[in-house]
Design a protein around this nucleic acid. Sequence first.
DNA 1: GTCTATACTGCGATAGAC
DNA 2: GTCTATCGCAGTATAGAC
Lengths: 225, 225
Amino acid sequence: MTQFEPITTPEARPAGRIRQQNRKRIMDAATREFARHGFRGTSMSAIAQRAGLPKANLHYYFSNKLNLYMEVLRRILELWDQAFGSLSVEDDPASALAGYIRARMEFSRRHPLVSKVFAMEIISGCECLSSYYNQDYRVWFRQRTAVLEDWIRAGKMAPVEPLQLVFLIWSSTKFYADFSEHIRLVTDQGRMTRHDFDQATDGLIQLILRGCGLTPPARPTISSC
Amino acid sequence: MTQFEPITTPEARPAGRIRQQNRKRIMDAATREFARHGFRGTSMSAIAQRAGLPKANLHYYFSNKLNLYMEVLRRILELWDQAFGSLSVEDDPASALAGYIRARMEFSRRHPLVSKVFAMEIISGCECLSSYYNQDYRVWFRQRTAVLEDWIRAGKMAPVEPLQLVFLIWSSTKFYADFSEHIRLVTDQGRMTRHDFDQATDGLIQLILRGCGLTPPARPTISSC
DNA sequence: GTCTATACTGCGATAGAC
DNA sequence: GTCTATCGCAGTATAGAC
């Protein structure tokens, strides 16, 4: 099914530009709404309004609400997989962990809505995500903790419970996306700037690496103040 | 308005036992539902069903859905205030921070639903909580970070950005309540036991305190294995 | 392929019998 | 004070004109 195959069967149709554009418009709008109100709390009309389309139109692109939601989740998981490379035993623990924290913070900064949809789904009980957990993720996760165990066994870092460390990094970085409103209200400032994020990232790296008995590597100061 | 005042005016009525019981039943049921589906995603009928009451009955105890939600939030904030004492400059940083982390983890273990309602509300944009943030909380929060600053200035701990440290503790402990389903699916085990929580708590204390340049105090091993 | 009109369901909330 | 019946409305989804 290449892009240049002649349009014959309806299924194989490579979906016109307008269709793809509208699908994206809808999914972007849906992401915003789902991030704020979760699956049940979101209405198709709200999504339609945000996408600038009549609500009946959504059913032309997505068979139903659940289908749209699943597509949004699927796109999120793709983004996710792209964003975080895998750790390797050969890596230097300090720079590998720092890189991981940095990548996660960058994700929180660039895709806060995506992170929120994910958070909502998990808090709601993972009904739509459980299939995903059963597949590749658990393997990917074990591989990650296994690397940490190897590092500890080799004396490269303090004997930290790998699971706890991964959870710590997960939660502390995700926090800056999911609870941005909490941060905004507590600090009494506007939304965090790129610079704020950089500082928070460096601080987290310092804290966590020191917590693991590691010294943070020289931070790549591309900054321009 | 004591408990023994004669029943005269309707407002001052000390609200019969049954009424108080039913209110609690409803609020408990509501907490479960709100924790799972957020404000918009929760229906009054679902709450009624869980509480074992006809849905019209809820409107007898709470004027409307928003009112019920706000009451649930208010009860949560009370619990919150009770749970976490305030830090003092005189305290020993290590044991004070350890105590704080322990208190938060204990809260996550005992009140996961409460934590989830709170998380949902924040992710949804804090529309109902913003008034709370404007009042005492910000002061309470500043006082807390100020103590950290004092400790750092006195050379009692490493120069960590206080805000980041508080956020780190907030997120890493809240994680065990809000993302319990994620943990369950990743670890492929049942719900975390009390013992699991104790281990996670100790691990977190180790990691965070070392990250702050502190040595964890001897942990109060009341355990009985 | 796209929009308008509408069917049908379940929601929050209320009226009124008891 | 409590329950049954029901209203009005917003929700998802579809039918059918164009």
